[in-house]
Design a protein around this nucleic acid. Structure first.
Length: 426
RNA sequence: GGAGAGAUGGCCGAGUGGUCGAAGGCGCUCCCCUGCUAAGGGAGUAUGGGAUCAAAAGUUCCAUCGAGGGUUCGAAUCCCUCUCUCUCCGCCA
């Protein structure tokens, strides 16, 4: 959520900032609502003040044994008007809130301006796509014959966009999770955290999934919970309504969770294989930091995610999302894209974002600034480190041999009891 | 699932219808005293919002005692619903 005070003050600047990301901020509607709000709020508060004063006077008069029946009648009348004004104010306030909750974050000034992913800016590349000397297969062709990946059985259990994994491939998948958690806790200074996979509405508002993106979620209807679409939701919301001391910051969390996405509106996309599933595993990095450091932290956090790909020896590139491709809550985002031989292109495997105070304002997550002695909003960041399913796909496809086996990356062998090669038996 | 108790400021905790945004303590900040240490004395210390103002400061008003509703001239205090915590019983990985 944007700061309403700032919107009042710099309305046009805000509207221009949002226009860069193809969002039309209705300045006229906002000004009109604000004008109404001002009038109504002043009136409401005057009435409340009057009621408070008169009631107080009744108390004093009564203690002196004076007759207060007429005074009470007067306040009673006042209360009727007060009630109407209150109701009108509430309706208006809700209108303004709904409006504000639906406004996305403003892109950071250095975010490249553009309309779609085509305008994203490549920042750097690491590694070189391998020359195979044979036609590389995709991960489905590699693993489905042996039922190491089994989409048919998953469809029987749950439907489309689910997978069953078996044997050494299932183990490799688990090894990836362990490896990522160990790397981030031991080398990058994150604390491992375990969180609920079902979250309430307040949490979903806090990180920005609600009110706009309800259709992306799997909701558990009877008690208003939803399955998390990312660990970002529970992990970031751990600081909701909290006041943090400066010495507690930065908070650095790494968290492995499954993620559940309904993928509504992506029917034609990536229907083959494991690229786009309703359920997948992810290791997430989350940082809660002082505002002054957040852009430096974004670079660090991105490099932490990159380190995973480097140790797995997977070629990738880093892309700065353009204004038009930015997520709702993000001010700046780097995507990491891993090379997939079967698609002959780089595919997103991690997204690292600085949300500045956008989520913090929704969550009322604050810290005590020692310099100003005031409570201020923190900045929040997160990034995948990495999406596990897609990492598995990348390893399979990049490390395949002519015989259709998978070379286990050196970094993972310790997690595989020394196994160097996964051979799929038919 | 059943029965009971509870939720107050950064923390602990008092407050059962009126001047209570809330005693007291802890913590924190500033000052004084003590040549160090230990200790002592004084002052200050919630958050959000509005109006005024070019802005800030200041002034002033409103809201907030788990959340939402209700009763009342007036609610931290009474009533209802919900959420969460604790104790006991049952069930259970």
């Amino acid at each position: 959520m944007l700061d309403i005070k700032r919107i009042r003050k710099d309305l046009m600047v805000i509207a221009e900032g949002l226009a860069k990301r193809e969002f039309k901020f209705d300045t006229e509607l906002f000004q009109q609502l604000e004008e109404e709000r001002k009038v109504l709020q002043v009136k409401l508060e005057e009435l409340q003040n009057e009621r408070n004063l008169k009631s107080k006077a009744i108390g004093i008069a009564k203690s002196k044994g004076e007759d207060v029946t007429t005074a009470m009648k007067v306040v009673n009348q006042l209360n009727e008007e007060l009630k109407l004004t209150e109701q009108a104010f509430e309706v208006l306030q809700k209108k303004i809130n709904d409006f504000l909750y639906s406004v996305p974050n403003i892109p950071h000034e250095f975010v490249p301006v553009g309309k779609s992913e085509k305008d994203n800016l490549e920042i750097r590349r690491w590694g070189k796509p391998k020359e195979f000397g044979f036609q590389p297969k995709d991960h489905v062709d590699l693993a489905e014959p042996s039922a190491s990946l089994d989409f048919n059985t998953a469809a029987k259990l749950s439907g489309a966009r689910f997978v069953v994994m078996r044997g050494e491939l299932a183990r490799l998948h688990r090894a990836l999770i362990q490896f990522m958690l160990d790397l981030h806790t031991q080398e990058h200074g994150y604390q491992e955290i375990y969180v609920p996979y079902l979250v309430n509405e307040a949490s979903l508002y806090g990180t920005g999934q609600l009110p706009k993106f309800a259709e992306d979620l799997f909701q558990v209807s009877h008690n208003k919970l939803a399955l998390i679409s990312t660990a970002e939701i529970p992990v970031t919301n751990t600081v909701r309504d909290e006041i943090l001391e400066a010495k507690q910051l930065p908070l650095k969390y790494v968290c492995h969770t499954p993620c559940f996405r309904s993928e509504a509106g992506s029917y034609g996309k990536d229907t083959r294989g494991m690229i786009r599933q309703h359920q997948f595993e992810k290791v997430e990095l989350v940082q809660i930091v002082e505002p002054a450091h957040s852009y430096q932290v974004l670079e660090e956090l991105t490099s932490h995610a990159e380190k995973v790909l480097q140790l797995l020896e997977l070629p990738y590139r880093v892309v700065a999302l353009c204004t038009g491709d930015l997520g709702f809550s993000a001010a700046k985002t780097y995507d990491l894209e891993v090379w997939l031989p079967s698609q002959n292109c780089y595919r997103e495997i991690s997204s690292c974002s600085n949300f500045e105070d956008f989520q913090a304002r929704r969550m009322q997550a604050r810290w005590r600034n020692q310099a100003t002695k005031k409570l201020e909003l923190v900045h929040t960041l997160n990034g995948s480190g990495l999406a596990v399913g897609r990492t598995l796909v990348a390893i399979m496809e990049n490390n395949q041999t002519k015989e259709g086996s998978i070379v286990v990356p050196r970094a993972l062998q310790a997690y595989m009891n020394g196994l160097e090669l996964i051979k799929f038996s038919k």
